[in-house]
Each structure stands twice: as C-alpha cells, then as structure tokens.
C-alpha cells in the first residue's frame, strides 16, 4: 500500500486485517521490525509550510530527509539535531526513530525539535497534537510520545519542526592519542565549560573529537580557550575535514549494539566490551559490535543496551515492570487491534 494522502492512510489502516509495517525509507529498522504488510509512507511527500524567520518547518511524513536538508540549507538553516543522512531516509522515519546525531549535546534530540504531529491511530482516526509554535503546553505532549514510537502507536502523516540557523563557522579539535575510556573525561571537561561544544565524540580512526560552531571570531576564541583547557589530556590540534558523518556506525560482522549510559559509567562498561565503533554525546552513547547472538556482560548501570542490528531484538536490563505495563497499556489504547508492528 502506498497512500498519497492522510485520508488514504486512515482508510488503509481501517481496512487492514493483519499486521501492518509503517515504513518510510526503511533505513533505520531494528531487528524484527518491518514485518507485516508494508504501509509505504513515501507517497505523502512535500513541504507544507516553511517560515525561516519563525524557525518553523511543516512537512509531510514521507518527504525525503535529503529534500528537507536541501530546502533548509537554501535558506541558511538546518535540522539542529543532525539526523544521519541515510540514503532514502524520510523525515517521518527520522521522527518515529527519534534519530539524533552528534549535535544532540547542544541542540537536543529530534524529539526536542519536533513541535507538532498529525498521525493516524490504530483505528484509523486522525489525531493532531502540538502545532507549529515552539512553546506550547496546551494539553498533553503527545508529540514526545510519538517521537521514537517506531510505528507502534500510529502512522505519522505530518510533522512540524523548529529549525536552527546554519553556523557561520565550524572547527573540530582533535586529541589523537586517547583511548575511548580516557576520552570520556576529556569530553566531559569540554562539555562542562562555557564553550558551547556542539559535538563531543571518539572514533577509532580519529581519536577524540570536539566540535565548535558559531560566528567566526567566536569559534576561533573558543577553540583557543578550549585547547588550553584540554592541554592536560595531550596535544590538541584543529582537524582538517569533516569526520562527523562517520560517527554513524557502518555495517560490520556480528551484531550492532547501542548503549546509552552516563558518561561517568562509560569506562566501567568499556572495560567489558571490545573496542567500540564510536562514542558520541560526550560518552553517553556507545556503539559496539558483538559476536552474533551474544549478550554483553555489563555491570549495573543507569542506562540500557539494545541490539539494533543483527540477531534479533534484545534489550538489557529488562525495562522497569511498571513502565512496561504503562507502555503495553498505551499501545493497546492507540492500537486496540494490535496491527502495528514494533519490537518494544
């Protein structure tokens, strides 16, 4: 099914008799997702409203992310949360996956930039929430609930985002020699100072990476001050080129795991894991490859680890039983016939 309008999406859902997989570009699927009849959302395409002076974009869910990025760039703006530019990715998939890139440490996640949604629930009912203004507490915030709900509560049909001005200048500082566990204190030092760090990561090929963005003179002065501050961690150099797209983990043999933790917990976790594919968000996000079908043996920590590619769904530790009960209850209320696929 490839509906062109919200009304057709609603009809398709009402008429569905078996499992449906709401799909955009299919670029961000987790294990076991994407089963059932495909409800292809790419027919709902196009920008509905773009007001650069109000930092507002309203866009249909099936619009390619590349098109959104292009339209914004032409007006000197961007999606501040920097979703990875995967081939074929749609803006609806970005929202449904809460896909957020390195700039999350400064600008927040997709859920923070998302200010309004329209969606069709499991009974084929169109629901609106939020709107097109960035401050809105009118009623419950279902926008947040839908962001990252991965097609389990409804089919997103239209989204409103707060946009961000493109920075005039950008530089990346590099500390080449730190191992990942040692990188985290350096990243914390940078993020804990008045430098407006816009990304803080570690990558096996580049080492420790810290990005500064903004007006040109300001970037230069912050780069100098931050280099000073980080002197104790090793030699700081300004990097040529743009390593940031490489933070998105590439396919590798085995299963891909995504671990969210407090940066202060990262060293203990890393000591039980092979060399990670990357650290991002100042050490709060670890991507690591593990042998197929295995589970990591991790100490108690305050976050969670999830297998996002490979053998089958897995999450550690098990979700809190009360939260799990509420989630089940919500899914049953938004999708009483249980037709939306999801791995949660």
């Amino acid at each position: 099914m490839r509906p062109d309008t919200e009304t057709q999406v609603a009809e398709a859902i009402r008429d569905a008799t078996g499992p449906l997989s709401i799909t955009g570009g299919g670029t961000r699927l987790w294990p076991d997702e994407g089963q059932g009849a495909r409800l292809d959302m790419t027919g709902l395409s196009g920008i509905t409203l773009y007001e650069p002076e109000a930092l507002t974009l309203v866009v249909r869910a099936g619009t390619p992310l590349a098109e959104v990025n292009q339209t914004l760039a032409a007006e000197g703006q961007m999606l501040g949360f920097e979703p990875s530019a995967l081939e074929g990715s749609t803006i609806g998939g970005v929202a449904a996956a809460n896909a957020s890139g390195p700039r999350r440490v400064l600008s927040g996640a997709a859920r923070d930039a998302l200010i309004g949604v329209r969606f069709v629930d499991g009974q084929g009912q169109v629901v609106r929430n939020g709107g097109r203004v960035m401050k809105n507490v009118t009623g419950y915030d279902l926008v947040k609930l839908m962001a990252g709900s991965r097609g389990t509560l409804g089919a997103l049909t239209e989204l409103s985002f707060r946009t961000t001005p493109l920075p005039q200048a950008c530089t990346t500082l590099q500390l080449a020699d730190l191992d990942p566990a040692m990188a985290v204190p350096a990243l914390s030092e940078a993020l804990g100072g008045p430098f407006d760090v816009s990304a803080a990561a570690w990558h096996p090929a580049h080492g420790t990476l810290i990005r500064l963005e903004g007006l040109a003179a300001s970037v230069a002065s912050r780069a100098a001050a931050l280099s000073d501050r980080l002197g104790g961690f090793g030699t700081v150099t300004q990097m040529q080129g743009n390593p940031w797209p490489q933070l998105e983990p590439a396919a590798a043999g085995g299963d891909l795991w995504r671990i969210i933790c407090r940066p202060s917990e990262a060293a203990a976790l890393l000591s039980r894991l092979p060399v990670p594919l990357s650290l991002d968000w100042g050490g709060a996000l670890i991507h690591v490859c593990l042998p197929q079908g295995s589970l990591p043996d991790l100490p108690r920590f305050s976050g969670h680890a999830r297998r996002i590619r490979g053998d089958g769904p897995a999450i550690l530790p098990a979700p809190h039983p009360v939260a799990a009960r509420i989630e089940r209850d919500l899914r049953a209320r938004f999708d009483p016939r249980g037709i939306f696929q999801g791995t949660h």
Partner: peptide, 25 residues
C-alpha cells in the same frame, strides 16, 4: 501507589518516551 522511574541518561529509557508525556501533564 506504584513507583516508577522514567527517563534515563540523555532522557532516554529505551522504550516509549513516557518522560516526555508526563512532562506537562
């Protein structure tokens, strides 16, 4: 009377964003 922890590092729980929906409720 049941007690629940919502959110986590970066505000992420690994499931639905219940933290986001209780905020403003």
């Amino acid at each position: 009377g049941s007690v629940v922890e919502l959110g986590g590092p970066m505000g992420e729980s690994g499931g639905l964003d219940l933290l986001g929906v209780i905020c403003g409720s």
